[in-house]
Design a protein around this nucleic acid. Structure first.
Lengths: 148, 148
DNA sequence: TTCGATGCAAATAGTTTGCATTCTA
DNA sequence: TAGAATGCAAACTATTTGCATCGAA
């Protein structure tokens, strides 16, 4: 489910909906709006954030529909969810894979490209035969300004 | 709150209770039993596991008491909690700091010493001034046997 | 015109909180 | 005997599910 940079977000939404149809799914208003919200807000949004956003234009779209669609999109590899700490999961498009560094003190989240984790991945594979996926977790710690 | 290897677990429990008293806290049955359960089971237990364990000898100890005491112990640096994935947090004594590698497929958790993360920590500090604490998070991925 | 998707309400899991009571120091 | 800790019930947050209805293909 690639998203060539030349596409507008609405073209990208249409492309995803076409993929959905091809998989026996249906292109509904809720899905179109949710995808548009994901493209528009490009970042760390909770299911509730996204629900609020789509409800601005379609007030009847229920949060359970948002959850169901986010799950479905995730199953298809279109979105990803991460836990930045306690509290709600955050969702984003999976087009730009990255990990997160979250300050335990102030909550600031830094996006970190996968290659930051490459040595760790090599270590884990060599020692344990374990293949790390740095996208799923947030890494806690202390950010520059909180460390003072 | 060091725990010299020569101590028995019950001596270690007494030492922690003494620390608690020194901090204006009180040495209650619930706390003694909870600490003993933490020492006995040396590893990844949920609050509910620990409650069940202490309830074997003291059926009236409530899960909310367990949560309150785990929080208190954590504030004092005696225990640590981690999230291995969705579902309940797991608690352990903080004496042996380690991170976790959790298989997204089968759920197996590998304990990994902090030094596995040393290059990642250096990278994060150099690039973002971010000080990683690898204990708080679990690292998802795929274990040796699931990778096949 | 079928069956996938939705809205709603209710259930669920994990954890936290308010408050009267108990027990440690 | 003061006030820390407890037991209990109820609240709370994030998420999931059952079911009747709606709507896309």
């Amino acid at each position: 489910v690639g998203t060539p940079p030349s596409q507008t977000s609405s073209e990208a939404v249409d492309a995803i909906l076409a993929t959905l149809r091809a998989n026996g799914g249906r292109a509904t208003t809720a899905r179109r709006q949710l995808l548009q919200a994901l493209f528009d807000s490009g970042g760390h949004r909770t299911a509730e954030d996204l629900a609020t956003e789509v409800q601005a234009s379609s007030p009847d779209i229920h949060i359970s529909t948002v959850y169901r669609n986010l799950d479905e999109f995730e199953r298809l590899g279109i979105v990803f969810h991460t836990h930045l700490g306690h509290g709600p999961a955050i969702y984003h498009l999976s087009s730009a894979p990255h990990g997160h560094l979250v300050c335990a003190n102030c909550g600031t989240a830094i996006e970190a490209a996968q290659e930051l984790f490459s040595e760790l991945s090599e270590n884990a594979e060599r020692r344990f035969g374990f293949l790390i996926d740095p996208r799923h977790f947030a890494m806690l710690g202390c950010c520059h300004s909180c460390a003072g």
